[in-house]
Design a protein around this nucleic acid. Sequence first.
DNA 1: ATGAATTTTAAGTCAATCTTAAGATTCTCT
DNA 2: AGAGAATCTTAAGATTGACTTAAAATTCAT
Lengths: 222, 222
Amino acid sequence: MRLLIVEDEPGIAAFLKQGLEEEAFAVDVADEGKQGLQLALSGEYDLLLLDWMLPGLSGIEICRQFRKEFAETPIIFLTAKDTLDETIFGLQAGANDYIKKPFHFEELLERIKVQLRPKSGQHAAFVLGDIILNTETHQVHKGNQVIHLTQKEFALLEFLMRNKGKVCRRTRIIESVWDIHFEYNTGVIDVYINALRKKLNLSADENYIQTVRGVGYIANEL
Amino acid sequence: MRLLIVEDEPGIAAFLKQGLEEEAFAVDVADEGKQGLQLALSGEYDLLLLDWMLPGLSGIEICRQFRKEFAETPIIFLTAKDTLDETIFGLQAGANDYIKKPFHFEELLERIKVQLRPKSGQHAAFVLGDIILNTETHQVHKGNQVIHLTQKEFALLEFLMRNKGKVCRRTRIIESVWDIHFEYNTGVIDVYINALRKKLNLSADENYIQTVRGVGYIANEL
DNA sequence: ATGAATTTTAAGTCAATCTTAAGATTCTCT
DNA sequence: AGAGAATCTTAAGATTGACTTAAAATTCAT
């Protein structure tokens, strides 16, 4: 991943460059506005870090010009001022985030990663009654207990919870969870539903996973 | 759709407000807990965005208090920490989802839409008087009751409602619902029509399913 | 390679659903 | 009004689908 830093204070620039290179980013530095914009427009960068106050061309101006050509590349402002108006101004100009100076390097790194992380692979937690399924940590909680689920159990529960409130037909379940795309005549689903209900202690008055006879199953709040 | 943001950092609040307003939401902001709760309890909002750490009253506390009065309104937490325990705590307090700061605006928007989706009622639902048949949830409502229908009952009602206002000949019904394509001389349809009328409580002055003697049946508004 | 964990298959059991059939009722026509 | 046909209603027997369990097959980690 290539980053461009546009920052006129050589101390900060060097500090960032070193730190980010240790994190395996390729980093270029520009120390004034015009050169910064020119480099940015070369299109080789995956993310820009722009200082707010710059000789030559202000950060905002770079941002605005750059956005005309590149709509996607994330931009983070490094701003000494944290006056509300100005940051909003920056965000309006097309920035994705800003960070106030002075800042912890860790924090900046975190934000860079957020901006670079693919939009599709977001973390997500799903809630169903007092059941919480976290796709990020791959854990399932019921009340305040952790429930250990196997791979398939987890996948099945995730599918049901992703589709909370909608009926999940058996064919769709087999397709999504088992990746079987043809005729199926197996009882696996039943077995796993059974396992889930058991592990999650779903009694009759707490049947978050209801069966829709002849069709499939549905996860529902009560 | 009206949203309430309870967030003490003015930068974030303003950023969200602006972004969400561009998405055609009506947005109010409270910058501390007590005011936030008070506004929330006015009941004018379709969704709450709560910061975790707040002056006055914590996000969790607001969530808990609010849930006592409004069971349906979705709540999304904006949380800086992502320690699992704390988020679980939040979700148990009645939140519907949480998102870690910093986040992509797109991501938040996505989640807001997910939470609001069920209400916007864009499912494949058919309406007949006060009967609602939802093919997605495979549920049938009459007034505000849920009516349990079997597979065949559901299929038959769906067929009639799909063809609302048109006469459904018995042969067509047998073909579509029972998949019988040759001679039929069975009373099944009658039996099921009977079951439907019974389960749906269709009296003489509420005969949404009328029989067309010698031909078949027709579902009609009154 | 071995043992443990997980996944899948298979079979018995039970309950919900479907179908049939027969008597009761309603409708239509003369 | 009365006959005949269509529809309604009910209940019993047949069928299907889901639940449960255990054992076989596979995968995983040591």
